[in-house]
């Protein structure tokens, strides 16, 4: 049975809150879930990426498998939300 009921949309909303906790310069506009997390988007640097991963793991109470620690999984908030939802749906 899955660890928690988390669809991708809910996860993205929680992710937006986590992003706001990071020490990064965000504009006043709402965070766009299709924006790139790195260059050309939210501009998360090396440190912020590491912090975000640790925040996610604490918030959602799971550990990313090594295969998910990839630029593709973290391309946008939407792709990241889907990866997290996929992990949460796995049996405990």
């Amino acid at each position: 049975m899955p660890c928690a009921a988390n669809d991708s949309t809910t996860v993205v909303d929680r992710l937006k809150r986590l992003i706001a906790e990071l020490d990064v310069r965000l504009g006043t506009d709402p965070i766009d879930e299709t924006a790139f997390l790195f260059e050309g988007g939210l501009g998360l640097d090396s440190f912020a990426v590491g912090e975000l991963i640790l925040l996610i793991e604490r918030e959602f109470r799971f550990e990313f498998p090594e295969s998910d620690l990839s630029p593709e999984s973290f391309q946008t908030l939407r792709t990241l939300g889907a990866v997290i939802a996929g992990n949460l749906a796995k049996p405990c």
Binding site: F38, E39, L44, D45, S46, V49, G50, I53, E66, L69, S70, P71, S73, F74
Partner: peptide, 10 residues
């Protein structure tokens, strides 16, 4: 270029 942990692992 533009290294971060995820790119480094890849």
């Amino acid at each position: 270029a533009n290294a971060n942990p995820l790119r480094y692992f890849a």
